[in-house]
Design a protein around this nucleic acid. Structure first.
Lengths: 199, 199, 199, 199
DNA sequence: GATGAATGAGCTTTCATTCAT
DNA sequence: AATGAATGAAAGCTCATTCAT
């Protein structure tokens, strides 16, 4: 931990908290829990984040930025909308497998603790990086004629509700196959739902 | 409250708790809160539910049964799969408007507090009434040739992730239109995603 | 329970409570526990004993009377003091083996919950039946010249502290032999301590 | 309380609790009671002892160590067994007079609340310091030929059951004389019971 | 920046006792 | 006599946050 810049240390705290919050839940994770997992004192935590809620909100922003960046990369590729859907789905499930805390945080912390996020993250402000990239994906698809022009949130709800729903089902241990085996089916379903009719 | 049978009183407690849990969250709703909202003593609550967690689980079962019954009615109708999708979507949004606590409970309490539901509701046991009816809807659609035969959870995740996602977006106040104005679009998207290719 | 006289029912309650109190302790045994073990309602318990403390005191009296009666029988026998000591020790250990709740009640409920017994059993009133018989044993031994004439409580503390201590040690599982194997040694020790010097 | 090391503070807490537990009983002494008697906050108590039961067990160990040490001193003296019995009895009664909480704790808390001590103090582990010294006293007496060679627990039960019994009788206010006036009689009784026959 | 002891309000849960039936 | 729902005070314990060092 020595010779760390303040920003690096904040990231360390966020990563540790992200793991704990997404595993045990916001209210079952205590500040001492986080401090211990970092080998840091409780008091010092407050030099980096002024409250548990501020920490939770910073994490949501941090996570959204990482996910947004991944989608931005996909958006930049010169491939068909269907290929993009597949890549986004694959990327999402990769993260769900390799860094499950990021998706779980969204599903189990952000989604359900409105009170925690209401002063600073209201109206999806803290996940705007992520939402924006999905919006770009959608609008480019419409512009290129591959996707039907419909209300953005109709499309967003489908795409993200679907992916989130699958990860939830995985977490409940009801899926018979590993997540990645669903990529093809899911991408096809999403594409069929959103594509322009005449294509 | 007089002349109430034990079972009726349990339902009264579940209804009151459902409202509070879904509004303020599980951990921000205290047993005294619930008792007060019912004009009942704290101790007496425990004559009906042996713990706060047991109460939360009973509520999930109760809610799932009500939703399952609504879908069962729709399943019983002699109409096309597309009509069924529309009715289910409409029913879901009606509830989201008129008894928002039921959907919110699922989204904000059940979905995210795994620890609370892990001893008694694991593996979606407590929502099986609801899941079963969606399964029946799907299998009948496949049997009639209207729906593509695919992994059930691929279809379930789409349908329910989507509807849940929309209600979540409504809760975040980011939707420009009232929920019911989305019914047509959403039903169409779901139908396009799931229908048999040759239809 | 039908056709039981009030007094018989009180005994039934005392016996059931005796078992629970001596096993789980006074504060860890609830009135509902006792009622359930009797198949009786909580409210009805209060028709027989006006409080939990009153019940505890009645039990102590009841137990003391039974033990006192057993000693009275031994006192009535035409045998040497040494034989009497042996019979009392044997009787005490028999009870510790066959009705352990009686000895345990004394050791673990009466002895330690002074507050419970302070309004009604103070100054060993409730165990006077028992104490009186030990007193008779002692005074007859002195009168017959077999026992040294000393302060009664010096003798009582030796005799009863010793026997209680052994049962306690048994309860802690530190004794290598069964209680009855100690009878000879213990009787001898007590006799040597109390007997007249010239005998 | 300032400038106190953690270990010193633990001792302060144990001493305060010892007094309260032995006076009012384990279940009638609350953590707030203890905290108040120390001018300390409830929460802070838990920085020193992780539960009320852990505190009770630490106290038993602490008390046993102090008593053990006192007996160790007596064991070290170059005096006859009879003198040692008298010194131990005197020491025990001195403590019963001057620090009554120590003996009362043993009699009224440890002895009777098996449930409290069963995870951590089972089998007299927590009083081993004390028991060990009595064992040494006994074995040295046997080796020197002054005491009869008998089962240790036969002797231990006599010695300690007797002394404990006398303190109990004192607590019940049935003794006509102050405890110290019994020392001579009691020491003699113990000696007569345990001494080698030919002496 | 770093520490961790200290605070104290607040939580879930228990239980002796009452009382309408 | 008998029932058991109802009461409500009080228990043990937790934890975000502060602050002297």
């Amino acid at each position: 931990m020595a010779f760390m810049k303040k920003e690096e240390k904040k990231i360390g705290i966020m990563e540790a908290s992200l793991k704990l919050f997404s595993t045990k839940g916001f209210y079952n994770t205590t500040i001492p829990d986080i401090a211990k997992s970092l080998g840091m004192s409780v008091g010092n935590m407050y030099n980096y984040f002024k409250s548990k809620e501020a920490l939770a909100m910073a994490i949501m922003q941090y996570t959204s930025d990482i996910l947004g960046e991944k989608i931005r990369e996909i958006n930049g590729k010169n491939i068909s909308v269907y290929e993009k859907i597949k890549l986004i789905t694959k990327m999402y499930f990769d993260i769900a497998n390799n860094r499950p805390e990021m998706i779980e945080y969204f599903l189990r912390v952000y989604l359900s603790n409105r009170d925690v996020f209401q002063n600073g993250c209201e109206g999806m402000i803290c996940v705007s990086a992520f939402v924006t990239e999905i919006m770009i994906f959608f609008e480019e698809g419409v512009r290129s004629g591959e996707l039907r022009d419909q209300d953005f949130f109709s499309a967003f709800g489908l795409f993200m509700g679907y992916l989130g729903g699958m990860v939830f089902l995985k977490g409940e241990n009801v899926l018979q196959k590993p997540l990645e085996d669903y990529i093809e089916d899911i991408s096809q379903n999403i594409y069929l739902a959103l594509k322009a009719q005449n294509v």
